[in-house]
Design a protein around this nucleic acid. Structure first.
Lengths: 220, 220
DNA sequence: GTCTATAGTCAGATAGAC
DNA sequence: GTCTATCTGACTATAGAC
């Protein structure tokens, strides 16, 4: 079993130097994301991974130090962008006037947009896998690095749903997260039909999610 | 990586004979469930597993044939019971008079009751992992063996929610499944407090889930 | 049915040439 | 930075004694 720690802090900026053009590094990251989504963290071996990426086996240890660190980097790359986009979308909304649907869209839509970027869609599956792994160090990693995003959204929800107690609100947000993860990672039974594109399908998913979540959050 | 197939049909009744009292077999199944929940299917090795169960390494292959078959058996044992209970609960409701909450309870509560049985709670995590694995053969296995249960519940939901189109209804049920899986497997951020028992916590989860799902399903 | 012992494969990591 | 070659350890599965 692969034990992950997620304990290291962010790498200093200059590690990925100005123009090292290490396409090797990026190829590894991209391929790792794809293979982790398909086969899991334990299931995808470095040998399969480097072979698929067309790089040498030793390159992973050279660039990342270990398989474990590679996994962390796969997460960091996407989550930094995803959560920055969520915050930006939230802050763009007019302070005290945003509706519940708008706030939900600020939370959910960046996940959709991530899926527009080539292999980005696969990352949602990686994330869902990570949730299922139920790893404490992952929980800590998410909480330490991206907890402030959740907190800002939560306080917006609290403002929009003043009739809910704190505990009640947390429960509901948690259930929304479950529905979101499930839907965006595409494990549901709803399969994309042949006549809709991947993007249309995701757009529909977002629309359904927002209305479903709004109803689940705001009921009396 | 462990490739699972789920293609075999149910074993003939007499395989687990009237009183073979093979406690070895049961110990393996129970321990496997626990370790698959904790470490994943690939992460839990037969060596760790048999060692923890206090049985010999070779016993797994003797009783189940392979690790893959052991995984299938872990699923079958719980899902047979879980889905039978769901159907029984549904059929106990008065035909045309059941409310949405009652039907939802018939679906959700057996999952809670499974958790009462010692290691049964762990099975929900195994199931969540399996969902995240996104394996086609698992999808087929679930659909072939337990699809009729989903179909009966779906037709009840359709009766109770006549204003929804078929596609709309499927989307919403899918989102409910996501919330259910997420909540029952306990990966959410809501952690059980020290002063409530595991059972009270699960009971609260079920109550929140039912109301949340009812609101999400029935909104206009 | 249960054990030991081992075959055969594959994993992650690293040393050292270039 | 990238390579080959190799170390060390773990895995599943099975053969064969009891």
């Amino acid at each position: 079993m692969l034990k992950r720690s997620f304990e290291s802090c962010r790498l200093p900026k200059d590690v990925r130097s100005v123009n090292s053009t290490s396409s090797t590094r990026d190829r590894i990251l991209g391929t790792a994301e794809k293979m982790f989504a398909q086969r899991g963290f334990d299931g995808a071996s470095l040998r399969q991974l480097t072979s698929a990426a067309g790089v040498n086996l030793a390159a992973v240890n050279y660039h990342f130090g270990s398989k474990e660190k590679l996994v962390e980097e796969v997460f960091r790359r996407r989550l930094d962008a995803l959560n920055a986009n969520r915050l930006a979308a939230l802050h763009k909304l007019a302070g005290g006037e945003a509706t519940l649907e708008q706030v939900l869209a600020a939370y959910i839509r960046p996940a959709l947009e991530l899926s527009h970027d080539g292999s980005g869609a696969l990352f949602m599956r990686v994330l869902a896998r990570a949730f299922a792994e139920h790893d404490d160090s992952l929980r800590r990693f998410l909480s330490e690095n991206y907890g402030h995003v959740m907190r800002q959204f939560t306080s917006e929800f609290a403002r929009l749903l003043p009739h809910l107690g704190k505990s009640e609100l947390y429960w509901r947000i948690d259930l929304v997260t479950g529905a979101l993860t499930h839907a965006m990672s595409g494990f549901g039974m709803i399969q994309r039909k042949g006549d809709v594109t991947e993007q249309e399908h995701l757009e529909q998913t977002v629309q359904h999610l927002i209305r479903f979540a709004a109803a689940g959050l705001s009921h009396p």
